[in-house]
């Protein structure tokens, strides 16, 4: 009897999806796209301001209907650099790139985004950063191109 290598069958999945972001996130992204404005939502029970905005408080499940205007500046809470590539389809930018979590002034939560016009060596936890918007905006979080350190006036 001849012995055989067990068979491996090559398969793939190719299925399109359209995930709806809902009313609250739509409003946030439309204002970002049309007015370069960043607004969060606040919980009157917990007193927290969420950025990006949420419609439901994660702690008490209250409906969050209060919109809070936020500036485009904030503090860098933490950061890292990405060096490996796992395919442009799953990565919005070719590596290497810098990622940070930014807490906008007046918000209680962090927003994850790219860091630009800077280097890993220059970055510090707690430094002031500001949003840089894309010229052509499409209504998603990448309408912010990146955050950059605010240079002290010289």
């Amino acid at each position: 009897m001849k012995t055989r290598e067990p068979l491996q069958v090559l398969g793939r999945l190719y299925v399109p999806y359209a995930n709806w972001v809902g009313e609250t996130t739509s409003q946030f992204l439309c204002e970002l796209r049309d007015k370069r404005r960043l607004r969060g939502t606040g919980c009157s029970e917990c007193g927290k301001v969420f950025m990006p905005p949420r419609s439901v408080c994660p702690t008490c499940l209250a409906s969050l209907e209060t919109w809070v205007d936020l500036p485009t500046t904030g503090l860098l809470m933490t950061y890292t650099s990405v060096h490996y590539s796992f395919g442009r389809e799953y990565q919005p930018m070719d590596p290497p790139y810098l990622l940070g979590i930014i807490r906008l002034d007046g918000a209680d939560t962090g927003l994850c985004h790219f860091l630009g016009e800077t280097s890993f060596e220059e970055l510090r936890v707690g430094m002031k950063v500001e949003a840089v918007f894309k010229e052509n905006r499409e209504g998603n979080i990448l309408d912010i191109a990146y955050f950059r350190p605010i240079k002290a006036a010289s």
């Binding site: 398969g11 399109p16 359209a18 409003q27």
Partner: peptide
């Protein structure tokens, strides 16, 4: 109100051991 959605296609390759 304008409602947004994000379109994408899930593309994954597999090697299924028979």
């Amino acid at each position: 109100k304008e409602l947004l959605c994000q379109r994408r296609t899930l593309k994954i390759r597999f090697r299924w051991s028979a």
